[in-house]
Every structure is written in structure tokens, then in C-alpha cells.
Design a binder for these strands. Sequence first.
DNA 1: AATGAATGAGTATTCATTCAT
DNA 2: CATGAATGAATACTCATTCAT
Lengths: 198, 198, 198, 198
Amino acid sequence: VPSDELSEERQSQIMEAAIAEFARRGFHATRMEDIARASGLSKGALYLYYRGKDTLIAAIMRTMLAWELRAARAAVAGGGSATERLLAIAAMFVAEIERIAGAMPILLEFYAVAARQPAVRASLSASYVEFREVLAEVVRQGIASGEFRDTDPGAVAFTIIALMEGQGLLWAIVPQDDDWRAHGMAAVRLLLDGLRAR
Amino acid sequence: VPSDELSEERQSQIMEAAIAEFARRGFHATRMEDIARASGLSKGALYLYYRGKDTLIAAIMRTMLAWELRAARAAVAGGGSATERLLAIAAMFVAEIERIAGAMPILLEFYAVAARQPAVRASLSASYVEFREVLAEVVRQGIASGEFRDTDPGAVAFTIIALMEGQGLLWAIVPQDDDWRAHGMAAVRLLLDGLRAR
Amino acid sequence: VPSDELSEERQSQIMEAAIAEFARRGFHATRMEDIARASGLSKGALYLYYRGKDTLIAAIMRTMLAWELRAARAAVAGGGSATERLLAIAAMFVAEIERIAGAMPILLEFYAVAARQPAVRASLSASYVEFREVLAEVVRQGIASGEFRDTDPGAVAFTIIALMEGQGLLWAIVPQDDDWRAHGMAAVRLLLDGLRAR
Amino acid sequence: VPSDELSEERQSQIMEAAIAEFARRGFHATRMEDIARASGLSKGALYLYYRGKDTLIAAIMRTMLAWELRAARAAVAGGGSATERLLAIAAMFVAEIERIAGAMPILLEFYAVAARQPAVRASLSASYVEFREVLAEVVRQGIASGEFRDTDPGAVAFTIIALMEGQGLLWAIVPQDDDWRAHGMAAVRLLLDGLRAR
DNA sequence: AATGAATGAGTATTCATTCAT
DNA sequence: CATGAATGAATACTCATTCAT
């Protein structure tokens, strides 16, 4: 089990190849040999860096989750009014979906796995809670500043996340709608309209 | 190759067992023998009524899709104002999610499959389009009656569907939140608030 | 287990269908259901008249063997000189091969089975011995009458049979040669020339 | 997918085991696991060197065909009169049959397969034509040298081949006759007697 | 560290046979 | 006699994983 800091390059080399192959064929239909070939390494080398296929899948899940969280925090960190920050998050989400377009099927398989494996579900759930808290805080600030009317911040956060996730889902299934980007943002504006103090 | 009207009872007998097993273990981890045992039939009998595992999965997908569509149409068919009818749809959706609670993991695997198989994606996509049209029509009526302000009906319909799907997704992943039902309806009310003419 | 004399018509009904199917697909690739369909009976009925697939195959073998033997005896029974009678046998053989053309692949599978199963080989062997004796007797008469020179009748009989069987084999494999019939008879004439007293 | 020159040793290792098992039990009754055990390799290794059972069978057929052709050419290549060379071929054939004694049932199954599969039949047919041409040429030389009387060389070649094949067939079926070797050669001498110029 | 040949557990599917009606 | 739904044993093939080199 190599541990050189430098050869963790191997790990991402493998993960990159794995993501590509998993996206193309799915977790189950992708053989370790496919990943080996795509990574330019040997089958045996894969097991030098990951304990096995399941471990590799789990590592990918962790990584993708980290990406999303990082992006979300970055969006919230930006300044501006509560409305502006929520819009920024929405925009980030839409952009993120487009960025990992090819890997989207993996996300869906990820969810499918999570729905069944408590351990996987737990980490996903944790990051959801964290994300929800981030959003709720923004909403809370909006209410405090008189920008939003008085509503349950948790419910609003839940709604936004559900909306974003649902958009990602539809995007993966429905034939690429040109209106996709517009619809995504329009959806959030509708929400914000409902939220605005009158 | 039995084809008696009466023995289509076998088909649902098998499908019922298959849904339970698939939900518990997933498409791949479920062996035909598991389904046989759960259905009280023999392995061979399964193949008397379904050409194979894939065919069985496809049949389940079709059936679940049909359930959803039927429920949606029923909800819209109810009378009342546009707002009332959209709320009815939302309530139906929440109820439906609870009804098929155990089968939810199947839906996620269903999406995962759809994201990769054009044929599956096509039917799912078609039912999405149909559903969107149903919702858009309600929105259009709401606008005509002065109940809603003037917005893009298609965008609103897209938003509602995304919201519903996202809720289902979160529901499957996040530890059963007691606020689930409340959140789900609150989310739609937020939307309707944003939609209401002022 | 029906035993009416009349319903042994069923047996030939089944055997006829079985021969056709076996010839088309081979012993192994033919399913009992194929035979049932071809015979116009139900799968269960087959087992009313034959204990099983193997029994049916054995019955077919017995029947085909009986055909050949009957034809051989008929040919020898005809009058004429030894040469004429041997030619008659050869002609009969050629005709027989053409008659059962469609069933020829069955004969080859028959041999393949016989080469491995002692019981099957035994009956085939017995009929070979009998046939050889019939031929040897004709040769013996030819020698006694001064028509043939003095040779080992058994060796000649063996030769003729080998020649006939070999012709059948080649006929089944080699693209239908138009010269087939001519070659077959020419071969025997060559033999008879070698046999003739000088 | 090993391809080293060295590890084609594996291929013959497997083929050798397969021939033994196929001869004992037949193509169909032999399971891949039987071959694996007999070869001292694992089931998986078999598929490393042959795409599957059918491929393995086809390879064996090709190999056995090549053996026969090589032996035939070698026999013809020997010098001597036409009569001597034809006798050499016959002797070679008899020897060859004895050499592959254990594999004879495979040859019969081979023929059974060939009678049904055009592709297999084609290669067998091609080698038959080639062999026939080799023999016909010897006969032609014998006629030219005045050793044989004037006959159709093709018919003679056909006759010899049929005789040889028929002998092999009988040998596989009939209880091992001690006279076998004598009969085989006697049969050819009869033919040559018929052929000799007078 | 890396390789890739070897392993063998795991499973969908087929089909001869049975038996309740 | 006849049916055909039901059974379950049997098997080719795949692929994650290991380990000698």
C-alpha cells in the first residue's frame, strides 16, 4: 500500500478514469478491467490504491459530495442581500449541474445506493443537513432585515434544496431542454417572489 | 406459455414480490430465486410469465409510471380554483410518495437506469411532458381567471414538478423527518404565494 | 400408458415428428416441446407413449436400423448372378441414402451416440454382423459358381459395407455432387472388377 | 488475455484435456468444469484461452482436420509406383485411425455437427476436395504409366476416400475385430486389383 | 511498485419431466 | 386419455480479487 504523497496522484488518476467509466456504463456494468484500461494502469495496481470496487465507489461518492458542499459554501460566502445570495446559490447549482453533466448518471446511481445503504445514506444525509442549515441562515438574515416576510426558514431551505435536486433529476432524464437554464432560474425567482415581504 | 386472463394474476403475484425484493436489495443484488421464493412460485414459473429479469424490471417501471400518471390526472380532475387544484396535486404527490414508501429505492434505480438507457428515458420523458402539460393548463386557467399573475405557465409547471421530484428524492435519502409532510405542503404554498396576483 | 393397438398410431405420429425435428436441429437442440408442437400433441402426451427423450431416440434408432436391414434383405432376395445381386444391393443402398436424405444428420448423430454407448453400439454391431453375413454368403456363392476368384468372403463383405457407409458419410458432408450416384455405382463396379475371376 | 508465444502451451494443454473429455462423454455431456479439472487449470483459465465451448470445439475440429491432411500428404509424398503409394496411403489411414483411437467418437460427433452447420461442413468439404485431388493425381499417374487401366480418376479417388471413411466408421462401432487391420488392407487391395491393367 | 495470469464463487436461464385437473 | 402449468436440476460464462514474479 504505497503511501507517498506524490503517488496519491495515482488515486486521482484512477478515480478520474473510474468516474468516466462509471458514467458511461454504470456501477455494475463497469468492470475493474475497464477502469484499469482507462487509467492506463494494470488491474493489480487498482488494488494497490483502493481496497476494491466498493471502496472506489465510496471514495467517488465522498469526493463528489465534497465538491457540491464546497461550491455551496462558496456561493453563500459571496456578499449581497439575502435575495442576491440565494440567487447566487441557485446559479451555482445550475452551473454545477452543467459542469458534471457527464457524471450525472453517477449521481443518480449514488442516490439509488444511498436509498438502500444506511452508511451511505448517513453521509449524504449529514451533508444535506449542513447545506440546509447554510440556506436557512441566509433566509433568517433575510427575515431579520425585513427583506423576506416571516416564514419557517427550515421549510424554505428544504424547498430550495428540493427544487435544486429535482431540477438535476429532470435534467438527467428529460431530453436536453434549451429552456433548462432559464427554467431553473425562473423557478427560484418564483420562490423568492413568494418569500418577499409586501 | 400461459395466457389465460385468469393467470395474469400470476403476473401481479410475481411483480408484487419483485417490487418488494428489488426495493430491499436493488435490481442487481436481487436474484431471480429471491423473487421466486418471495412470490411462492418456482424459478421456472417466473420465466413462464416474464421473458427474463430485464423484462420484469421494465414491466415494473411501466406499472409504476402508470400509477403516478393516473394519480396526477385524478388530482387535476378535481374541481376548484387553480390554487386549490395545484394544492390538491401537491397533496396527492405527498400521499403517493408515502404510499409507495417501500418502493422508493426502486424509483431511484429506475431513474439511474433511465439516465443511461435511451429507451427507458424516452418513456419517462414522455410521461414528464404529459404531466407538465397538465400542470401548465391549470396555471393557464389561473392566469386567465386573474387568480395568478402573468407568468410562463411552462416554467411554473417545470418548477412544480422539479419541486415534487426533489421532495421525493430527499424523502428517500434523509432520515424520516416528522416535518416532512408539513415541509412538502409549505414548499408548494411558497410557490403559490409567489404566483398569486397582487 | 395407453395400449390400444389402434393408438400405436400415436407412436408413429410422434416418431415422425421427432425424426423431422431431430433432423433439423439435432438430438440435443430439439426440445420435447418442439416435438409436441410438430406432432400436434401436448407435451404430456409424449410421455404417455415414450418414457422420455432418450427412449424416443432409442426407438428411432431401432426403427431406422430395421428399415436398413429390411431393404438389404430385399435386395439380396432378388435373383440373378452374384455380381447382379451385389450390384442390386449397392443400388438399393444409394437409393436408400437418397430416400432418407433429410434424416441423414440423424444417422450421423446415431453413430456418434453408438460410439459412446455400449448398449446402442451392441444393437448396431449386431445388425452389422448380420448384414455382413448376408453379403458374405452372396460372395461365397459367387466363388462357388466360379464367378469370383477365391478371396476371403468376410473381407469382401466388410469392404462393401465400409464403402457403402463411407459413401453415406461423404454424401452428408460434401456439397451435393451431381456425380454422386455415378460415383457410388462406379465404386462398386471397381470392387467387382477386382473380384472377378480371370 | 494472454498472448505470449510461450503460453500457447496452455492452449494445447487445454485442447488435450478437452479431446480426452469430449471423447469420453461427448461434446454436450462434457462440462467446462470437466475440461478444467482434466487440464489442471481453473474454469476461468479456459476462457482466457478460448472464447467459449463452441470455440474450443471448433479449434479441435480444425486441429484434427489438419492432422489428417498432413498425414495424407506425407503418405503421398513417399516414392514408388502408383500402387505402392496408394497402399501407403491406406496403411497410413489405418495407422492414423489406430493412433486417434480414443478420439474417434469425437470425429463422429464432428461429422454430426458438420452435417448441420454449413460453416463446419464447408471446411470439412474443402479438405475432402483437396484430399480427393491428391489421390486422383496418383491414379492419373498410374494410368499414364500403364499401371492402371483407364478409369475416371475422380471416381477412384472418391471410392478410396469413401472406403477409408467407412472403415473408420465401422471401426468405431463394431467391437474391435482382430481382423480389422487385415480387412482394411484387403479392401484396398481388392480395389487395386480391380484397377490394375490387364 | 507494478503486472497480469490465474482463480472460483456467483447466477440467469433452459428444458426434461411430473401431475393435478 | 389428454393437457399444460409448474418444477428445479443443471451449466456456461463473468469478473472481482489475489499473488507469484
